[in-house]
Write a protein that binds this DNA or RNA. Structure first.
Lengths: 221, 221
DNA sequence: CGGGATCCCCCGAGATACTG
DNA sequence: CAGTATCTCGGGGGATCCCG
């Protein structure tokens, strides 16, 4: 059997043969936010060898998860986009994200937050329950260089890259932001201690945390 | 950063650092069925290098997903079991299985079905909707060497390794079994064509397919 | 016999340079 | 901008051996 195959007639094996390749899950995470150019992907995946990104994109195209689209018109760039089959991975990737996020504490040395990871994190976080009914809110979230927005309307949350314009609240996360999202740190205290900086009505921060809560695991360190 | 790390503060990255290692997903799939000895795992994962299985088990223990338990008493064997943290992976693994199973057609050359993969497949398949109310049914399913059982009681399905005793229906899958589960092949035709062999009331096969349906993807070949 | 450890080979990943 | 080319090196594949 080919090196990457497992020789088992099993859905999980087939998934592992594709998704178990190094960097593949992160490439798909980035493409789940939207079509991206080669250089966008490279920028969002610091440390990926250039040849490996090219190889992975070819494999994913071969496997029917990604299509390479040569855009016409003035912008003659090439973009990679997910196929419907690729889009169907979202529930699985979200479940993996949720599992991984439950054990996230403060960042390790040198770890960064990318735009795609921030968008994914907000999307996953908003799934823990149906959003409350209420007035429409536009949030902008910044962590490091990454910026994302979330629009909370009646019973629905829409998340995307870049800022909301205009924003009801701009949240800028720093050290301690994770504790705030976990519900361990009180919103008022978080503002006071500088764990987050907010622009807009600080009272909306409690609403934000309510919607985008990411609990810690009970027993984990 | 360590070779296996991605340098991103992101739940999916952390998940990928652990689960992206070769064979790890399949090891966890097997342990999700229940505690297993080293030799059980090796037998259920044909082709895994012995040293790699040992290495993975140590890593998973280090990461807090697996515990190594030295059983006391007459049976002085060592078993590996999932921790609560490891058990929490089930929704994610099930989502991956579902995604992978949607594109499973007939087996590739040399592919086998193991007990753990059969148990997982039945568990995942039974999740597509809440089981119908009705009389309790005990199914035994055989595919190749693998045997699993499923007990369908009021609104709940319990799946496990080995046969049900007694069984209301024994289903033995052969070529074409996948089509039956997809709903492409009619139960009566499946029996007539030899796609499955049944022992017990053949009318129960329709009930079985109803509960454990695994659709094909719409557009896939 | 269960539960590994050791060895060698080689492919795939990392790093960097270069090109259409 | 969108990759390809080349080199090195660590980790996986495969077989064999070891130890209680």
């Amino acid at each position: 059997m080919p090196t990457r195959a497992y020789g088992q007639y099993c859905g999980l094996s087939r998934a592992a043969e594709i998704l178990g390749q190094r960097w593949t899950l992160l490439i798909l995470r980035d493409l789940l936010v939207g079509p991206r150019r080669y250089s966008d992907l490279a920028a969002g995946l610091p440390g990926i060898p250039s040849n490996l990104l090219a190889t992975r994109l070819k494999e994913l195209e071969q496997d029917g998860l990604v299509v390479r689209q040569a855009r016409a018109g003035a912008d003659r760039s090439v973009v990679y986009a997910l196929t419907p089959r690729g889009e169907e991975l979202q529930p699985a990737l979200d479940a993996l994200s949720r599992w991984g996020a439950a054990e996230l504490r403060e960042p390790r040395e040198g770890e960064i937050v990318t735009e795609a990871s921030l968008v994914s994190a907000l999307r996953v976080a908003s799934q823990h329950r149906t959003p409350p009914r209420g007035r429409r809110r536009a949030f902008t979230v910044r962590v490091g260089q990454a910026v994302a927005h979330a629009i909370v309307a009646d019973r629905a949350v829409v998340v995307g890259p870049g800022p909301a314009q205009p924003s009801d609240l701009i949240v800028e996360g720093g050290p301690g932001f994770r504790d705030l999202l976990a519900g361990v740190l009180d919103p008022a205290d978080a503002v006071a201690s500088g764990a987050v900086e907010v622009t807009g009505d600080p009272a909306l921060l409690a609403e934000f945390v309510e919607i985008f809560r990411v609990p810690y695991r009970a027993d984990a360190g």
